[in-house]
């Protein structure tokens, strides 16, 4: 067993565990959006940042992928951690304003509104990539992927056309933390499959 501290409290973890896993074991809350037990962690949403402190240095790490080690001091609610979280929530409120889940979570962490203009009031996807990861890793099909990059990044099928690779299993819809996949699934699933599904 590996012993270390979270918020000055002694905790124990098995080797190979992440800080997030350990924290959840002890009921210490750390917010996440892009994390799911059934797929590999990608460290993309950065909501799970925690501060590591030693005598003369400190740094922020993503707890969903940071492996535990003996004697580290983890803090989940420092000013630096909260600053990152607050900005992420504010940016998400302007980027995917139609997501109830994001709004709820933001509220919980004290962010009620955003200073940034809302681009698309109907958007609820925040590109956490859970849908593409589940399709690749669990379903094994890679019917969808993240396309393009940076601010132009989006989730979709090749050439943004419905694809026959999709078997309409619904895993992406289920795993989506903001319900964004529900409205998008028809742009991914090819018509023949949809008709088949209807016929069945």
């Amino acid at each position: 067993m590996i012993k270390f501290k979270i918020n000055d409290k002694e905790v124990q973890a098995r080797s190979g565990w992440t800080v997030l896993e350990t924290a959840r074991q002890y009921g210490i809350e750390i917010p996440t959006l892009c994390f799911h037990e059934s797929v590999a962690s990608s460290g993309a949403c950065r909501l799970c940042m925690v501060e590591l402190r030693e005598e003369n240095w400190s740094k922020l790490v993503a707890s969903c992928i940071y492996p535990v080690s003996e004697g580290i001091n983890v803090y989940t609610e420092t000013e630096r951690v909260q600053n990152v979280r607050r900005w992420i929530f504010e940016m998400l409120l302007s980027e995917c304003p139609s997501s109830k889940e994001v709004k709820e979570m933001a509220k919980k962490y004290g962010v009620f509104k955003t200073r940034f203009p809302v681009q698309n009031p109907n958007e609820s996807c925040m590109l956490c990539g859970l849908c593409t990861r589940v399709c690749e890793e669990v379903v094994g099909l890679s019917a969808i992927a993240t396309l393009d990059r940076g601010v132009h990044k989006k989730v979709g099928a090749p050439f943004l056309r419905p694809t026959e690779v999709c078997v309409a299993c619904g895993c992406c819809v289920t795993i989506c933390p903001t319900n964004a996949m529900r409205s998008r699934i028809d742009s991914v699933r090819s018509n023949t499959k949809m008709q088949l599904a209807k016929a069945a």
């Binding site: 890679s142 019917a143 969808i144 993240t146 396309l147 393009d148 990059r149 090749p158 694809t163 690779v165």
Partner: peptide, 22 residues
């Protein structure tokens, strides 16, 4: 041609398209 490349390399079309747009 992208589909032919995928057949050759064994990369799913989705991933090739993802690379080509990245």
């Amino acid at each position: 041609t992208m589909e032919q490349i995928c057949d050759r390399t064994g990369v799913p079309l989705t991933q090739a398209y993802s690379v080509a747009t990245f």
